[in-house]
Every structure is written in structure tokens, then in C-alpha cells.
Design a protein around this nucleic acid. Structure first.
Lengths: 343, 343
DNA sequence: GTTAGCAGACAAGGCAGTTGAGTGCTAAGG
DNA sequence: CCTTAGCACTCAACTGCCTTGTCTGCTAAC
């Protein structure tokens, strides 16, 4: 397979731009008239035939125009597309929405998700940081009844996690002392570090399980184990996607609705993005996996102190205006990372 | 308009049962053959014409069978339908699922919702009790930074509510003392009562705003105000509805998807059910309100110690098997009420 | 009051013809 | 050698027409 010539590229570019706008198969004439009037339709047809052979375009049927394949989009993304910078209006819109409100981090991220969806006109997804990536602020144990203890964990950023532990009966007074001990002893660690530290100390302290410290450690470990499994996710603006003309087919609409319901899959795919620096675009097979053929996702991890803690993305039909959405997602990831920096 | 004769009723009954089963307009012949073979189709046609005149049936077009109108269903529900009792299997299924798990009430209600949806083969909705209907167990104040204090409220049943309050800088030590005071002073009240009590005491204590008690009261009131606005809702099994053949029309499917997204409306309509004793069935205009024409909702409030605290329901196409779903919803409401009794 | 029979309505499905958009190929022109 | 005009061909989508099957309303007879 040859490299693409400049002319090939400009034609592919035009086709994709037209397709993104209309959603219809695009023919040679329109390209000639609307984009590249120095070239005749016939010439463009020849190039199109080449591009099709390379697998970048396809025809839904022989007498129709061409539609870019996932490979076509991929190729467009890798070099042809020119990324616009994010308009000032949108930047201010983002910062305003994010800095509003009470400072509850779940709330902030929910608002971020709303903005992301509004600007991109697609659905947006944010995976919240797992609480164990945050700094430990405080733990509380509350005795609910003879065999249930509630553990409440607060991070410095104001994220709360609570969990009920089944166990033996311990008086509230003792529980308070355990909590006090942990609160003093594990200041300024992340919750993850705290857990490691607890484990270490536990094994060295093993003999003295009956001491206050030993029991506090035990309860702390039980509580933190449960933390690891929870993963919170926010999806906003599904309806913008459902209402797009792309889903004019009943079964496809059903598929997409169902795919959104099954959050686990989306989380899994977003988690893979976490480690990749910068903005990733997932399309083609990667999306078919989760039952969303012809859809794509623009996603990025965000981090605190350069450690990735969560990810966010925009999901919509493959014909998305990537030149707008990519910088949007990138900017949002940066802003959130900055926001988390000092938490 | 006359009363319905027994024969009218049995014909309406047959039409509704047939329609619930097939979803298609039902003609006179089928009724004659399958349900009431002592009557000829012609006779049934005559009765059907009468029922149509009364507004209980309608024809989608002149040469089609009849479909029950919302009024037809209403009429069926008020006297014709015979409510079956809930099969033993389903009862045990419900209790097993509900008594499983950690005892976290949110979790329990989520599982209840899943069961409700599975058995009814429709979407289910549960509005969680507002936390202020629960018994106060404990409050905690955590100083996050100079101007943010986190309030954590725990109910005796193990429901947690947290909220960030913006305010002046108070040391953690003082906050602990405030919390201790409140925890001691307001034992064994519901959170709602606690709030009233705080207010009363506040106005009598007005002068001494600088005292520990005064400040504790102030913080408590601020925190409890925010509680009032939150309303938690769980929806499960939307996909069972989306996949029903009733939604063979693209626009209708879109409408329903959108209606589910807009939870506020559903909450509002469910809240109206709260005060009504027993199981209510909403159909017709009440559902059109929330963009769900041709759908209906079987709902019931549930209570603790005879005070209604939340509601639950099943949403699906109007052609629902009410004789199964109504006892199901009723049973579930009773079980949840019992469960809450001792919390 | 009930029923048989008949005419009329109409959605749904199959079929043929038309239209229009778009292609591939070929041969001529720069 | 690249580009382009022209032409034949393909095919989806639309249209109108016809047939079929179902169901009704009406009327006259039982």
C-alpha cells in the first residue's frame, strides 16, 4: 500500500468533513463543487476508488456515494485533521461551571460532565477517582446494632465513602477510640498508602491483636478492602445521542440504549485509556466490543500529581467533529487534573 | 350512560385479556372463538359498538379490531378484574433477595427494585425514604479546609447523608465538641423531629449564640436544611421495556427513553401516590403528562410506623397484566414497610 | 334478543415502473 | 502522464396499482 499523496489527503479530508456534517454517503460531485472546485468529479472518482481499495472508504451499495470506514477516520485523525484550539467562550463556560457549587467533588464532576455533553452535543462520561487515590482525612466508626458497624471514610477533598461491616459487637466508645487512633496515626497519607501501611503494621503487631491498636488496625483493614471495589461513574446527555438522526434504525437505537445501560463495559474500556497519555480516540472494533458499532469515543485520563486517577470521555456517532471534541476533552482533562492537584 | 351488564363486562374482560396477551387490536371473531363461544361474532360486534360509544374501546382504523382505551382499562380495574394472589415462589424470591446483603438500606432497596423488575418483566422504580424520616444516630463534622466543613449524618438504619457547608473557620477540636453535644442531646429522635427541636431551642437560646451549644445548633440547622432537598431514586430494568414489541415505532421509543431520563417528573408523579393508601394505577392523561402515553404505572407508597416515607412502582406499556402486577407491588410495599418498621 | 350473510373499508404486502444520484470505464485533450 | 467529458450501467427510494385478509356495520331472518 502506498503513502497518501497530498491530493489524496485533501480529498479524504473533504469527504470526512462533508460526511460529518450530513451523515449521508458523499458523492464525487459534491466534493468537486463544494470543496475542491479545481478538480472535476471524474478525477475525484478515481481517487475515491483508490481510497476505497486501501480500505479507507466504502460504498453502502454500488450506486451510492462513499462513507469513511473506521480506518478512514483513523487515518484522518493521524495527520490530516487540523485540531482547532478551544474557543474562549467554551473555556470560560467550563471553568465557570466547575468552580461553581459547594465543592463536593462528586458534584463538581457531575457538573463537568454536563458541560462536556452540552458543548460536544454528545453523551459524556466521567469515571470518578477511586477514593483510595485521595488523601486520608478521617475515618469514623458508628455502631448501628449488635453486629453491624458503619465505616465512614472522608478524603481531604471531601469525598465520602461509607460501608457497613458485619462483625462482633463493639461499644461505640471503643469504636471512637479506634477511630481516634487511626485519625492521628495516618494523617497525610493517601488512602492507598494508608492501607499498605496498615497491613505492614498489622503483621508486625500480630501478637497483640487484643490491644487497642491491633483491633483498630483490623477494623481499618476490613473497611479499606471494600473500598477497592467501588468505581463511580457519571453519564450525562444520553438523550442528545438518542435524538440524533444517525439512530434512525429501531434496532440500532435499541442496541445503543442497551449499551449505555451496561456501564461495566464502558468502564472497562475507559480504564484502558487511563494509562495512555493525552487524548485517545476509540473507534471501530474497540467500540463494537461494547455493542456500539459506528460509534466512537474520545477519551482521556486525568490525573493528580501526574498519577492517573480517573478518566473522562465523549461518546457519540463515529461522524463526530473530532477537531472540536478532541481539544475539548483534552482541556477538560487538564482542568480537572489541575483542580485535583491541590486536593 | 348506562351501567354495564354482566355480558358487557365479560366481553370487555375478554378483550382486555386478549389485548394484554397479543398487543394487537382484537376482533369479534377471536373473542367468540377463544373466550365466549356461546356468543356469535355478530353479537359481540354489537356489544363492542356499545362499548366504543361509551369510550371504553376504540378502533385504530375502521376495518381493524378494537383496543381498550385508558377508560376501558380503568373500568376493568374497578370491578371486572379478579386479582390473583401472589404465587409462593415469587414471595420467597422477594424475601430472599431483600434479606441478603450487608444491610445497607440503599443496597437493599436497589435489590428490591431489581426483583420487582424481574418478576413484573417491566421497569421498576423505588423512591428512597428521605433521610429525615429516619432516626437520628449520629452526626459528624469534618473540617476540610478554612471555609468548608463536611457534615455527615447517619441514621439508625445505616443510611448516610453528607453535605459540604461553606462557612467560617472552626477548629476540628471545636467541631468534635459540637458533634458530641448534638449526638448526646438528640438521641432517639427522627431527624425531622431533631430539626424542629433544634429550631425551637435555637430561638430560645438566641442570645447565647457564642456559646458552644448555640454554635452547634447553628451548624446543625444549616446541615439539616440541605437534607430536605435530596430525594434519591432507583430505576431498574429499563431495558425490559425498551425491548418490548410495543415500542416498534422509532419516535415512541425515543419518547420513552427521554421520559426515563427525566427523573424529576417521575418523582413528582410518584410523590402524589404517597398519600393514597393501597396500590394505585396511573394511566391515560396522568402518564401523558410525563411523556409516556400508552404507558401506565402501578404504584404504592410504603411506610414506617404508618407514616408514608417513600413509594415504589412498576412502569410499562398500558397492556400490563395488572392481575399479577398489582398484588406484586402491594406485597413489595408491605414487605418494605415491615422491614423499615424496626429501623 | 340473536344470528347469518353480505357489502364496504382498509392495512399490509407484492410487483412493476420511474426517477435521480452516483459510479466505472473509455477515449480524447492538455 | 494526468485530467476530464461523456456514456452506459446500477441501484435505492418512491410511486401507483393490485390482491389478500381481516374486521366492521347493517339488514333481514330466526
Amino acid at each position: 500500500m502506498h503513502e497518501l499523496t497530498d491530493r489524496d489527503k485533501s480529498i479524504l479530508n473533504a469527504i470526512i468533513r462533508e460526511y460529518v456534517e450530513t451523515g449521508e454517503p458523499v458523492g464525487s460531485r459534491i466534493i468537486s463543487r463544494k470543496y475542491l472546485y479545481t478538480l472535476s468529479p471524474a478525477t475525484i472518482r478515481n481517487v475515491m476508488a483508490d481510497l476505497e481499495e486501501m480500505g479507507l472508504l466504502y460504498q453502502p451499495h454500488v450506486s451510492a456515494g462513499r462513507i469513511p470506514t473506521p480506518e478512514g477516520f483513523r487515518c484522518y485523525l493521524n495527520g490530516i485533521m487540523e485540531v482547532r484550539s478551544l474557543p474562549r467562550v467554551e473555556k470560560t463556560m467550563i471553568t465557570r461551571q466547575i468552580t461553581r457549587g459547594s465543592g463536593d467533588i462528586r458534584d463538581t464532576l457531575r457538573r463537568a460532565s454536563v458541560v462536556l455533553s452540552q458543548i460536544s452535543q454528545n453523551a459524556s462520561i466521567i469515571i470518578l477517582p477511586r477514593i483510595d487515590t485521595f488523601f486520608f482525612k478521617r475515618v469514623d466508626f458508628v455502631r448501628l446494632d449488635e453486629n453491624r458497624i458503619m465505616v465512614i471514610l472522608v478524603s481531604r477533598a471531601g469525598m465520602v465513602y461509607n460501608h457497613i461491616v458485619q462483625g462482633e459487637d463493639i461499644t461505640q466508645h471503643k469504636l471512637d477510640r479506634y477511630a481516634n487512633y487511626l485519625n492521628e496515626a495516618y494523617k497525610d497519607l493517601t488512602i492507598h498508602e494508608m492501607r499498605d501501611s496498615l497491613m505492614r503494621e498489622m503483621s508486625s503487631e500480630k501478637a497483640s491483636f487484643d490491644t487497642l491498636v491491633g483491633q483498630a488496625l483490623d477494623l481499618g483493614i476490613t473497611a479499606l478492602k471494600a473500598v477497592e471495589e467501588t468505581q463511580d461513574i457519571v453519564i450525562q446527555g444520553k438523550e442528545t445521542v438518542f435524538n440524533k438522526p444517525d439512530l434512525a434504525d429501531l434496532d440500532r437505537l435499541r442496541d445503543i440504549v442497551n449499551a449505555f445501560e451496561d456501564k461495566g463495559r464502558i468502564v472497562r474500556i475507559l480504564n484502558r485509556v487511563l494509562e495512555v497519555p493525552g487524548v485517545s480516540v476509540l473507534l471501530g472494533e474497540e467500540m463494537e466490543h461494547i455493542g456500539m458499532d459506528n460509534f466512537s469515543m474520545v477519551a482521556s485520563g486525568y490525573s493528580r500529581r501526574n498519577i492517573p486517577v480517573g478518566s473522562l470521555g465523549v461518546i457519540g456517532p463515529m461522524r463526530m467533529d473530532y477537531s472540536r471534541v478532541i481539544p475539548l476533552v483534552g482541556y477538560m482533562a487538564r482542568i480537572l487534573s489541575e483542580l485535583l492537584e491541590d486536593m
